[in-house]
């Protein structure tokens, strides 16, 4: 450290000092970092439990220094329900991708939201099955080229991309829904605030909180990390607009 300077930001201690296996520029690693920053800030490391999905973030337990549990593909919401009901004083979050939460695990997700289970969903929506080679997912944009839709997603046969945040916001017991992104420093700061808010709501036993992250996949989208940010800005955000979709806590204040 240089003389006459003070430290204002360093890697959170709750994020293990290990090289993550994610591709350069992937928002999975950004979200790991933000989650662990919030855990460190709220000082809840010893009572946080994370649920790992199947997908790129299947090894998330290798990087986050909190209790983690691996779930079967798509069943993170069911596992999180069990953990939260048995250990209600723990802060539970399920960390899932779009192939996990919006495809194979839609039923678990929707029913957990319908029951208003008191945990946080972190939903990483990159519009593609990243780990298996960039196949089309339910959240793939219309006309987006993937390895299983080489001419672009045809909405006549494959339907329209699923807006999970909008869907779960319709459930009465869901307390807080926000869509965030990490494509700019400002949006990343908002994402961090959203995670913090959802954990605080969870500590007050308010109900389900759902954070969707409009994420990127440079390898699956066949572009550089910087080009993937342009794609998010031009293509993803017009269809998946950012912002708070539901916040019952805010309405109480009014």
């Amino acid at each position: 450290m240089k003389e006459g300077y003070e430290l204002i930001y360093k890697r959170p201690k709750t994020l293990l000092d290990k090289r993550m296996h994610y591709c350069p520029g992937c928002f999975h690693s950004t979200m790991h970092k933000l989650l662990m920053e919030v855990v460190e800030e709220l000082d809840i490391q010893d009572r946080t439990v994370g649920i790992c999905p199947v997908g790129c973030s299947v090894f998330a337990y290798d990087y986050m220094d909190v209790d983690m549990q691996e779930a079967a593909h798509g069943r993170a919401a069911a596992v999180a329900t069990g953990i939260k009901r048995m250990l209600p004083d723990r802060i539970v979050f399920s960390y899932q991708g779009d192939g996990d939460l919006a495809a194979i695990g839609t039923a678990e997700t929707l029913h957990a939201c319908n029951r208003g289970e008191n945990f946080t969903f972190i939903f990483i929506n990159n519009g593609i099955y990243g780990m298996t080679g960039g196949q089309m997912a339910p959240t793939t944009l219309e006309n987006q080229k993937t390895s299983t839709s080489p001419y672009g997603r045809n909405s006549a046969t494959a339907g329209m991309p699923m807006k999970m945040a909008e869907i779960v916001a319709t459930f009465e017991k869901v307390y807080y829904v926000e869509r965030v992104s990490c494509n700019t420093p400002a949006n990343t700061r908002k994402a961090r605030k959203a995670i913090k808010k959802s954990f605080e709501y969870q500590m007050q036993s308010r109900g389900t909180s759902f954070i969707e992250v409009a994420s990127n996949c440079p390898s699956g989208w066949k572009c550089t990390p910087i080009e993937s940010l342009d794609w998010i800005k031009d293509q993803v955000l017009p269809y998946y607009p950012l912002g708070v979709l539901k916040d019952l806590g805010k309405e109480e204040v009014k």
Binding site: M1, Y5, E6, L7, I8, R11, P12, R19, M20, C26
Partner: peptide, 9 residues
């Protein structure tokens, strides 16, 4: 993404 940066003021 990889928390590789430390900032000093």
């Amino acid at each position: 993404p990889d928390a590789a940066i430390t900032v000093y003021k």
